[in-house]
């Protein structure tokens, strides 16, 4: 059974069609790049998968279940915004995640915090934006979730942090789980991807394995992305 499956998924905001008849499926154990230009519908898709938005029509299921309390136990979500309360310190955040997520591994989180020299007593409001993003990523990746949904995890950070984030995703995700990574910075993530989904103007333009792209089309994902979106756009 696919871990995530969309069937004829549509989402409309007033006159704007954010997602249009999206059909896709993600199998367990895959790292999938959800790639597309800004405003293509990537975040909308991830928000629906997290139950933050209700589809206009069609279905999205996670492990066969409609997004709800049960699927939230399976999904670890990194939104593109900093969602941490600014008054909380790192220890309080660890307590919070321990309380709400049975799959949260506190030791892993503490190890990663130590590696990055982030003081547990530091409050979110005392951190730089980059450090806040690192803490958020550490919290999300320290869960032994079935599905990681990461929305623009490398957008707006310096190259060193970007490398760290990609390394963290690779070394800390549960191998039996899947990762869906939304970004438009393809060259940075291409090496770690198993599959890609190209999405543009709310429509899936392509779903393929990276291996197939390289062997059949004799090009990199980045090159194909430029070609597809030049054609579609």
């Amino acid at each position: 059974m696919p871990l995530l499956e969309c069937k004829q998924l549509c989402k409309r905001y007033g006159a704007v069609q954010a997602l249009n008849n999206v059909d896709l499926s993600v199998e367990p154990g895959r790292i999938v790049g959800l790639l597309g230009p800004n405003g293509s519908g990537k975040s909308t898709l991830l928000k629906i998968a997290n139950g933050l938005l209700t589809p206009t029509s069609g279905t999205l299921t996670i492990d066969g279940l409609t997004p709800g309390t049960e699927t939230k136990k399976l999904v670890s979500y990194l939104p593109e915004r900093t969602y941490l309360s600014r008054w909380m310190n790192v220890v309080q955040l660890l307590d919070f995640f321990c309380d709400f997520y049975a799959d949260f591994d506190r030791e892993t989180a503490e190890r990663m915090l130590t590696a990055l020299e982030i003081s547990p007593k530091l409050r979110i409001r005392q951190m730089s934006k980059g450090t806040q993003e690192k803490v958020q990523l550490i919290l999300v990746m320290s869960r032994k979730a079935r599905l990681y949904l990461l929305d623009e995890p490398i957008g707006g950070v310096d190259p060193a942090t970007r490398d760290y984030i990609i390394r963290t995703i690779l070394t800390h995700y549960n191998p039996a789980a899947s990762v869906i990574l939304s970004t438009h910075l393809i060259a940075d993530v291409e090496e770690v991807l198993d599959d890609v989904i190209f999405i543009n103007k709310g429509t899936v333009a392509l779903q393929s394995s990276v291996e197939a792209i390289r062997s059949e089309r004799q090009c990199s994902v980045d090159e194909l992305f430029r070609e597809v979106f030049r054609y579609v756009g």
Binding site: N50, G51, K72, Y77, P79, R81, T82, Y83, S85
Partner: peptide, 17 residues
């Protein structure tokens, strides 16, 4: 603040109703 701003992204993705 906790439910309608950015913090809502955390609160509404907790396994809570």
């Amino acid at each position: 603040k906790n439910l309608m701003t950015d913090e809502g992204y955390l609160m509404f993705t907790l396994p809570a109703t």
